[in-house]
Simulated scan of single mutants.
Amino acid sequence: MQVFRGIPEHAAHTSVLTIGNFDGVHRGHQALLQMLTDTARALALPAVVLTFEPHPREYFAPADAPARLASLREKLLLLAASGVDRVYVCRFNARFAALTADQFIDDILVRGLGVRHLIIGDDFRFGARRQGDFSLLKARGASQDFVVEAMHTLDVAGERASSSAVREALADGDLAHAARLLGRPYSIAGRVIRGDQIGRKLGYPTANIQMKHRRPALSGVFAVSVEGLADTPVAGVANIGVRPSVTSAGKTTLEVHLFDWNRDCYDAHLRVHFLNKLRDEMKFGSLDALTAQISRDADQARAWFADNPIRS
């Protein structure tokens, strides 16, 4: 899959295109991407995604923006796995936000991306003050020779599959519900970095996954499986949160204690799959109390895996 930053002034080729943030690439997104790739193959054209960085809600109201389900890198990996040929990552800034709906169609879709067939969600809005909608695209497509097709909302057991619904499930600790909406267990990927070695001192060494500036969609202690270390996933227990028992910095960390693993994994790029929530994050009065709880967490996670073995 090819990834481009920004939109070209003039497209070199025509395309089958879809547009969206695709945060989490849930089952609704997957159905849309399947429709995109099927149409692209039928027309012998590239399947193209236009997405935005940052998320428009992060631009307009950063303090109120929702937690991201996936980093840009994770989103691109999921798009590639869905069969997308090209992704254009458009920087969402003041200039882009000021584009009228007609300018968006003329400058971005027609000239920049050479759209021949456009597939969008049925609630897609665009342009300054969200003035553009499906009806406008349909009318402009008829005059400028591109087809516009709407993908209707996908329901999962009677619920609309959406990024918001996934976030709500994760915030509630309902990982099974989130997995149904995603079509897979929720996961976070990142590089293992050096931490403060507190886990090692307590007898429970951890792999510290780099979170950068990300605000996670879930917190607490979880039974997890980890990819990227061996031919098969490794079971473990993870804490994602601000570690109130050991620091007051308020910085979010993701730490994973890997079961039956004693090799160095610094700089490895791991994917942590969250399978079962054990408890919320808590503050303990001493390191001894924290250590005792970590021991109970590990025992509880091992017991869960005994009843729910990892499928390789």
Results as ranks from 00 to 15, higher is better:
Ala161His: 05
Ala80Thr: 07
Phe96Glu: 15
Leu77Tyr: 13
Ala142Cys: 09
Gly158Glu: 11
Arg116Leu: 06
Gly158Asn: 13
Leu136Ser: 05
Glu168Ser: 15
Leu99Lys: 12
Gln197Trp: 02
Leu76Gln: 06
Phe124Ser: 03
Asp133Glu: 12
Thr153Ala: 00
Gln144Met: 05
Asp145Gly: 00
Lys75Gln: 14
Val115His: 03
Val115Cys: 09
Lys75Pro: 13
Leu175Asn: 04
Ile193Thr: 03
Gly199Tyr: 07
Asp106Ala: 14
Ala97Leu: 07
Ile188Thr: 11
Asp133Ala: 04
Tyr186Leu: 00
Ala80Ile: 06
Ile198Cys: 06
Val192Gly: 00
Leu182Trp: 03
Arg140Thr: 08
Asp85Tyr: 02
Gln144Glu: 12
Ala165Ser: 03
Ala179His: 01
Leu137Met: 12
Ser187Asn: 09
Leu113Ala: 10
Ala179Asn: 03
Val156Asn: 02
Asp102Ile: 08
Phe146Thr: 04
Phe146His: 02
Ser82Asp: 02
Leu181Ala: 01
Tyr186Thr: 13
Ser71Lys: 09
Gly112Ser: 08
Lys201Leu: 12
Gln103Val: 10
Gly121Met: 08
Ala128Pro: 15
Arg125Ile: 05
Arg180Ala: 00
Ala150Trp: 01
Lys75Asp: 14
Gln197Glu: 11
Ala176Asp: 14
Leu170Asp: 15
Leu182Cys: 08
Asp122Cys: 01
Glu159Asp: 09
Arg200Asn: 10
Thr100His: 03
Leu175Gln: 03
Ala161Leu: 03
Ala142Glu: 03
Val156Thr: 09
Arg91Asp: 14
Glu149Lys: 14
Gln103Tyr: 06
Ala128His: 15
Leu99Thr: 15
Asp172Thr: 06
Arg160Gln: 14
Asp145Trp: 07
Arg91Asn: 09
Glu74Asp: 09
Ala142Arg: 05
Ala171Lys: 15
Pro185His: 04
Leu79Cys: 04
Leu79Tyr: 03
Leu182Thr: 02
Asp174Val: 00
Leu182Met: 05
His117Gln: 10
Leu109Trp: 12
Gly141Glu: 14
Glu149Val: 11
Gly121Thr: 07
Arg194Gly: 04
Arg167Leu: 12
Asp123Leu: 12
Ile120Val: 15
Leu170Lys: 15
Arg184Lys: 03
Arg73Trp: 06
Thr100Ile: 09
Ser71Gly: 03
Ile198Lys: 01
Gln144Tyr: 02
Gln144Ser: 05
Ala81Cys: 12
Val110Arg: 13
Thr153Val: 02
Leu154Ser: 10
Ile105Asn: 15
Gly195Asn: 04
Asp85Thr: 09
Leu154Asp: 04
Leu77Pro: 03
Arg130Thr: 06
Leu154Arg: 00
Ala101Trp: 09
Gln197Cys: 05
Arg91His: 12
Tyr186Trp: 12
Phe104Pro: 01
Ser71Ile: 06
Ser162Glu: 01
Leu181Ser: 00
Ala70Ser: 10
Phe134Asp: 08
Cys90Asn: 13
Ala81Thr: 13
Glu149Tyr: 06
Leu137Ala: 13
Arg86Tyr: 10
Phe92Lys: 11
His152Ser: 10
Arg194Gln: 07
Gly83Trp: 04
Ser135Met: 05
Met151Pro: 00
